[in-house]
Design a protein around this nucleic acid. Sequence first.
DNA 1: TGCCAGGCCGGGT
DNA 2: ACCCGGCATGGC
Length: 217
Amino acid sequence: MGDLTNVLKDIYNRLYSAFGPQHWWPGESRFEIIVGAVLTQNTNWKNVERAIANLKQAGNLDIQKIYELDIGTLAGLIRPAGYFNIKAKRLKNLIKFIVEGYSADLDRMFSADTYSLRQQLLEINGLGPETVDSILLYAGNKPVFVVDAYTRRIFSRHSICFEDISYDELQSLIEAHIDRDVSLYNEYHALLVRLGKDYCKKSNPLCNKCPIKGIFL
DNA sequence: TGCCAGGCCGGGT
DNA sequence: ACCCGGCATGGC
């Protein structure tokens, strides 16, 4: 059977057998996950960890603290994550939304209807679909499949889609063909990132020893 | 050493 | 509707 549902299942099973559970999202609180989602935009996770460590050490990994923090000081703390000036603004925009829209209450925010919350988050300057969906899935436990550059690269190399497929198109395609399950979405995305880092970089298109070698739609 | 990393925005065509 | 430069640090 080469139908998409089975191909997606096969890929997941191979990845899980090869790599095991990835324990995503790395981070100790929902707020830390939210901050990490912004800081990791086009950035190596190692650099994000340093930035988060700086925030923790300064006692500033807190909604109200960052809300009140001078933007220049915030930028200085997150410097290791790169793009620190623009990311300081983006964090401020997001936190302003949470504080002023939901009284800084994450429980209240995530109890909103997922679709409308997604639309609201997408209106915030600096948050695109991957950042928003990461927040919804990994901080909010909402069944939203996160698409990223690795997802697109890996799936296109296995003829599941074209490399220039849009975010929403690929997300819809995936969500229509696998069970709508938060834990599955969580692990699947994490495994794709793991595969991407280890075997599916831009520079090694052949994926010689990759665990899903030979699986095609 | 140069290329890349768990994107997104704004201005131009 | 696409296309592209800018944003910036640290790892390999």
